[in-house]
Amino acid sequence: MGAEYLANEYIPIFIFILVALGMGAAPLLITVFVAEQKPDREKLSAYECGFEAFEDARMHFDVRFYLVAILFVIFDLETAFLFPWAVVLDQIGMFGFIEMMLFLIILLVGYIYAWNKGALQWE
């Protein structure tokens, strides 16, 4: 499980990332040169069902998206804790299981609170 393992298993992934970058970028490059390009002002403006685009597109959006993102951070962190816990469940035994259940119950209180406050409600 030393340097050799890391080299043998992770360098191919690194090469794979380079190959994937190539596979993604090459068609985009080729199409720019192969296809006929005839840009004009109308064509290059933002699509808005035939209107002239008005206002900046980067407008306000619903605050509930933020709420979901914050809740996501909490629960995704929880999965990040659960992953290693599930792998060593054989070594930590019942004690470890009860500990994790206590942790989950604390989070569950927060989840029920969020539910009651309507953070998960989309009408």
Binding site: I30, V34, A35, E36, K38, K43, L44
Partner: peptide, 9 residues
Amino acid sequence: FLKETIIPT
């Protein structure tokens, strides 16, 4: 491949 590439201004 033969379609034009459009990058909005």
